[in-house]
Design a protein around this nucleic acid. Structure first.
Lengths: 316, 316
DNA sequence: GTTATTATATGACCTGATGTTATGAAGCTG
DNA sequence: CAGCTTCATAACATCAGGTCATATAATAAC
């Protein structure tokens, strides 16, 4: 025989509050309603839950013990309500975030760390990919959002793109690199150094090809390839090799690594680094939070980058 | 917002079984019923519990977590059902047993120990009293049963008395007492020894008075009084004092103490030691068990006492 | 791709639990 | 014993939740 959990919860409150009337109050129900629920429960189990003929209603031994179980049920139920609320407010949940490797590793991951320290119950599943894969992930529901560089004109119809930062690539090198001491850098200067290549299927790699071509060369010497950001940084700071990177990545990495940027403008399509999501789809609330958080963080990041730019101009 | 515990339980089963249809089966409900319950829950919380457009229904992150809480509720509920069943079968519960001191201490307490070793969840609250107090306790519901000597004719109308043993008192002394070596014991013989008096308000004390009077004396010397069974036994075995006691108490005590019984018949009203309960009242199931248990135990006790009587007759 | 199969959702209907207010009965208190 | 408090009951309305029949949609099979 299955008991009604609701009945047990009511019982728990009555016993806790010390009386049917007070219990009804605490439950926000009318006294007769509660009374009848208990009568029904007693009828079901065929035993008394309360000592008969006692006016401040006192539980029997059985009533007492069932009330305890009712209390367990009650607290589980309350926790469930709480959980729902937190999910809806985005304080809990799962967020599947996809993005391009270098940018995720160099910029987003520290922001995710910040985000999680404020929303400790949001579980983030990160994955890597480029535009096509990420879009597919969004479409088939295995991703909640994607962070990637994108020409605003190419945003798929059913998706929304929130730009976060201009997609500005630079040529990076170790601090103190010989080229940083030159005033005017020439083709020949650059030609003396090898390149660290980003993954060969990445847009960054194509950017590198394009940039080199724009400088007037068809090929370039690759001294290191196939690594993720961590390896690239190690090679970069430990050698005179050059690489191409989003400026934001260099900017942030400079806080802990000795890096520098060559004063050379690189041509590439007008892209924005931003957040891509499915448009109509009802998004998890945590996504909204995450999106707002990223927007704010990138706003700050931009300010800091602009500020540094001012300083650099003043200096030279 | 309060969620329906029933819904959470259903969710738990669905998630556990891996599908709505299987879950409905496991719950013994129809598939549409379960489907609608989930639809209702989703509507209430305003979020999806299952990934949309997945045929073997798969829970969302929120659904997964709520299901876990539903599982907790479910197991508490099941435990409640179990508890009720055990109560009804008398394997659990509380039994308030009252009785006369000497008899409770000397006979019933060991039986209670036996009973509890078989019904480990029955909690026994023992109290002492004599007829009037015990009857009052039964009437006002502070006692579930009483164990006491009673003349069958005096059983109150609203109560039921189950005789367990003839209320046969004897004069006890230490083993090896001088009187046990005599063939015919005379008044004068007894007069040489002092008495250990049972509590002065006990029927046993009145029995002692009556017995002494029947022998032809009006008074008797009391060397010890006011003790419970344990003290009485100590004094009895450590001195030549005599006392009056139910034979059953002496019989059982002899297993571990050096006691003997004087071959003197004591006159007293025709009483039965037995179990007194309220008649109509719906008794706790544990009481029925206890009553049956006592009946069986006393049956065995009687057989053993009879057997010893046979042996004693044969010997002398 | 089309069909078959299986899984889930929906409609129509009925029962029963639960909410309400008004009121009666019974224990507790002074 | 009077009066207060506490609980139970009656009468009624509403809605959750049970059923079966059936539609729809995802997956599997061909």
């Amino acid at each position: 025989m299955k008991l009604d959990s609701e009945h047990l919860e009511i019982l728990a409150v009555i016993v806790e509050k010390g009386g049917l009337t007070e219990g009804a109050d605490a439950l926000g129900k009318s006294q007769p309603s509660v009374s009848r629920s208990m009568a029904l429960l007693e009828k079901r189990i065929g035993s008394a839950l309360f000592e008969p003929g006692r006016r401040p209603l006192r539980p029997t031994e059985l009533g007492q013990r069932l009330a305890k179980l009712g209390g367990q049920i009650r607290s589980a139920n309350q926790e469930a309500s709480l959980l729902v609320r937190r999910f809806q407010q985005g304080h809990a949940g799962r967020l599947r975030v996809g993005g391009t490797q270098i940018f995720m590793d160099g910029v987003i991951s520290t922001m995710i760390a910040d985000f999680q320290s404020r929303h400790d119950d949001v579980q983030i599943e990160q994955s890597y990919g480029y535009m096509d894969g990420l879009a597919a992930g969004l479409r088939n529901g295995t991703l909640d959002c994607a962070i990637l560089p994108m020409p605003p004109a190419q945003v798929p119809a059913e998706m929304t793109f929130v730009p976060l930062l201009p997609g500005h690539n630079v040529i990076a090198c170790r601090a103190g690199h010989p080229l940083t001491r030159r005033k005017g850098i020439t083709l020949a200067d650059i030609d003396n150094y090898t390149w660290i290549a980003p993954p060969s299927d990445s847009p960054l790699f194509r950017d590198l090809q394009r940039a080199v071509k724009a400088i007037g060369r068809d090929d370039f010497r690759v001294s290191f390839s196939g690594g993720t950001l961590a390896s690239i940084m190690s090679v970069l700071t430990g050698s005179d090799a050059l690489t191409i990177m989003p400026y934001s990545v260099v900017f942030l990495a400079r806080r802990s690594l000795a890096l520098d940027v060559l004063p050379l403008r690189i041509e590439h399509p007008d892209r924005q680094l931003g957040l891509l999501t499915m448009t109509g789809q009802q998004a998890p609330a945590a996504l909204k939070r995450f999106s707002e958080f990223l927007t704010a963080e990138f706003h700050r990041l931009r300010n800091r980058m602009d500020h540094e730019l001012q300083m650099a101009r003043r200096r030279g």
